[in-house]
Write a protein that binds this DNA or RNA. Sequence first.
RNA 1: UGGGGUGUCGCCAAGUGGUAAGGCACCGGGUUUUGAUCCCGGCAUUCGCAGGUUCGAAUCCUGCCACCCCAGCCA
Length: 546
Amino acid sequence: MSKDLNDFIRSRIRADLDEGDLSDGIVTRFPPEPNGFLHIGHAKSICLNFGVTEEFGGSTYLRFDDTNPRKESENFVESIKSDVRWLGFDWKDKLTFASDYFDQLYSYAEQLINDGKAYVCSLTTDEIRNTRGTLLEPGSDSPYRDRSSEENLSLFRDMKAGKCEEGEHVLRAKIDMSSPNMNMRDPVLYRVIHASHHRTGDDWCIYPMYDFTHCICDALEGITHSLCTLEFENHRPLYDWVLENIDINYHPPQIEFSRLGLEYAVMSKRVITELVNRGYVEGWDDPRLYTIAGLRRRGVPSESIRNFCRRIGISKQDNLVETEYLDFCVREELEQDAPRGMAVIDPLRVIITNFDEEDEVLTAAWHPKNPELGNRHLTFGREIYIERADFEEIPPKKYKRLSPGAIVRLRYAYIIRCDEVIKDGNGEVVEIRATYFPDSKSGADTSGLKPKGVIHFISAANSIAAEIRCYEHLFISKVPNGDRLENELNPESVRIYSGLIERALFESDAKSFQFERNGYFFRDESTSRLVFNRTVTLRDKWKPTT
RNA sequence: UGGGGUGUCGCCAAGUGGUAAGGCACCGGGUUUUGAUCCCGGCAUUCGCAGGUUCGAAUCCUGCCACCCCAGCCA
């Protein structure tokens, strides 16, 4: 974790620091709009913005970009705060809202009007769109473009005073209707919205647009490096224009990097909102979603997310990261300290015909390499359960599990041999009859037997029923089409099993476990029932060769 | 056909004129009572393509090609 990160933004920061005028360190900001939950793409930005100030010294603002009351709400600001905190970052006293600056923003707008650099336009939305021109053709000037400053000011004050309907007037910057950059064709700066704001209530009925707000807030907060994603590159000239045309003494540089692309994930808040609202997922924290809350509920440690963001790096290239990379980062963390235990996801009963006594108590380590985690007890008895997938009547080549006549070791216990297969009327295997070898006890094996493999098991007497949820990709394709969601969903994205877990697992207060040979699982805290979510499978090189 | 970006291994990504880091994935081999972990080894004569400059180019120049973003009173 100590290895120095190197990317074009950090190089730029190092260079700026060398220049010398950043005596108080650098200042960055993470500026979410409170209109949804944060996802792993935001985590990339959070790790960057908070990461660089940790590395180089300085501070990072958590600034809510709340200029559209129609879409924003208090519960989203709370979820965002808790997600940022959970990710391991601290904004200290630097919690702000764009709405904190509404007064200042307003007076800068009046300044622009007084300087003849902004005007009130009374065209309708459609008219504005139709006169904006196209990518190939210039737009045409609004007939209201040459209103006097006095008239503009009076109209703008009427807008502010609530004397106007929504859509009746907007404030526009007077720049250049024939600019090849569409953002410079007299962009709207303020619009009328008659809606209560989650913080300012009904104090305002005009709200500033992003392009006007963001750069000024950055300047006011003394942001030394305004980091944003590539789609804002075209907005940079406007960012600069606003700051150059108002009376403000600071002008942060906007630096763009590419957003995270992740296979099988959708990073559009609009689309995630739709998945939630249409009931395609359980909620914003559905474990199949790559939201921070979803990842947390699936059992992904925040450290893994931070490591993932560090490994993928920062560049300006469009990217589509493979999910295997995230999985690797998750296993890397969990491998170190998740207690091990046995859980049978899809149980198949096995009767040990030559075992008639009480269950025998056995001891097993909670972790093979981490003795500090101590030991647990489990039992072996006449009636046990093994994983249905660990038995094959007709085993493929190199099969190392149980099949008729074959022997296999039960982890931490004895070697057994399958003697008989019992099926139901449909020909489905419902029970195995087996014998165990008393001299093959784990750790004291004198049997001389050499089974090809080891499988996990749970004695009926030592088992606790648990619901086990195994997740797969939510989508069928690597790059899901957000406009055709219903055709993109994987019908098997979650499989729910009635499984069995060791009693010791049930009694442990750990949250993350490795169910041996099955994967890492996390106790679902959203229910009082005993439910485990599969965080990630174990890596598995086994592939039948026939 | 306008403007702004980006093109280095299957996926991320360093490299900024001195002769292609690293990680993931993958492929071997070793250890292993998790087909896990761990450990060793392999994996771009080549940097979108074509020319040019240079003793020397992924890095400089020219021309092409491909992909992404922009026509919200969203952010």
